[in-house]
């Protein structure tokens, strides 16, 4: 019961959109596909949904070619959102549930429950064309999951949503994964990745350049970052941290980031030495040794290519 994408290739004319991509998404896993626009994320998803056929390679679900199972077992939120504008929300959702093979009172009740859960109740009587972009997107999200798909493929599910709706959607995704749904989603917003994904793949120019768990990806570079902070109104006004850090000749000059004062630790450097020095320097509020964030890994790897990291 898992999605296996094996050595898949897809070209459009001379453009290699997807080159030798392999993925494995088991039930209950939330898998992130990360990369700049045009990296091949959407093409990969369209091939999983059998909207496009790969030039080479295989895509299977549960050992079966996806062409056999996609329509009933998969749910899809396309990047290009689209619903029938003239239909009411409930009719629209009933239609897509029916298209995926289910109908009846149970479906209607579930639609109502989801409408309430995603805070669409006050819009439930409206036609889709009367909805705001964010609300239409939530309706579209529901259209992709009412038939209890075993695999949910979401192309940029959070783009265009306000923080409240992002949180609603994230919670729904985590619950669905809890129930055993395999979820593959693409994004270029790194914070979503670290919050949601068990595994991720960084994709660039149609190729996967890094793949693994969030921890593996963060550790992949071997870099360690040390962050230090002392009681101060803001990081910028904290004068003690940079002074302490500059006291170590082996360390590069400290940098002020949104997360505080930070240095990259050279190999073999024991961070406890900094802690020792800091304890006598003042009132410590932050001491942290961590691998780079996904965002930092991403920026480092994608450096030079256009990216949309937050």
């Amino acid at each position: 019961m898992s999605l296996e994408v094996t050595h898949v290739h897809k070209s459009f004319g001379n453009v290699k959109a997807v080159h030798d991509v392999s993925l494995h998404v088991p039930p209950g896993m939330i898998y992130g596909l990360i990369g700049p626009n045009g990296a091949g994320k959407t093409t990969t998803m369209r091939m999983i949904l059998t909207i496009l056929l790969p030039d080479a390679g295989t895509i299977t679900w549960n050992g079966q070619p996806v062409t056999r199972v996609a329509s009933r077992s998969f749910g899809y939120l396309p990047e290009e959102r689209g619903l029938y504008p003239q239909m009411g929300i409930r009719d629209e959702l009933r239609f897509f549930a029916g298209l995926h093979g289910i109908r009846g009172r149970a479906v209607d009740q579930e639609i109502d429950a989801w409408i309430e859960r995603l805070e669409l109740t006050e819009h439930a009587h409206k036609k889709v064309e009367a909805l705001s972009k964010g609300n239409a997107q939530k309706v579209q999200f529901l259209a992709s999951l009412l038939h209890h798909p075993q695999l949910l493929v979401l192309d940029e599910p959070f783009s265009g949503l306000d923080p409240v709706n992002v949180r609603l959607l994230k919670q729904a995704l985590l619950d669905l994964a809890q129930e055993g749904t395999a979820i593959l989603f693409s994004t270029h917003r790194m914070e979503h990745v670290e919050e949601l994904c068990s595994r991720l793949a960084l994709i660039r120019h149609g190729e996967i350049i890094l793949e693994g768990t969030v921890a593996e990806v963060r550790r992949s570079s071997g870099r360690r970052l040390l962050r230090l902070g002392f009681a101060a109104p803001s990081f910028a006004q904290d004068e003690i941290a940079p002074r302490v850090l500059r006291g170590f000749a082996e360390l590069p000059p400290p940098q002020l980031t949104s997360a505080g004062w930070q240095v990259e630790l050279p190999a073999g450097f024991d961070p406890a030495r900094v802690l020792q020095a800091a304890l006598s320097a003042g009132n410590i509020t932050l001491f942290e040794v961590a691998a780079p964030s996904i965002e930092e890994v991403y920026v480092e790897l994608m450096g030079g290519t256009a990216n949309h990291a937050a």
């Binding site: 239909m87 298209l99 919670q171 129930e179």
Partner: peptide, 27 residues
């Protein structure tokens, strides 16, 4: 309260819908 509406709540199983072409025809 926000999670009670999820797919986990199923008082009755959904019925099988007719084939896709009939669903589209109806719409």
């Amino acid at each position: 309260p926000t999670t009670t509406g999820g797919p986990g709540v199923q008082p009755m199983p959904p019925q099988a819908a007719p084939p896709a072409w009939r669903v589209i025809l109806g719409r």
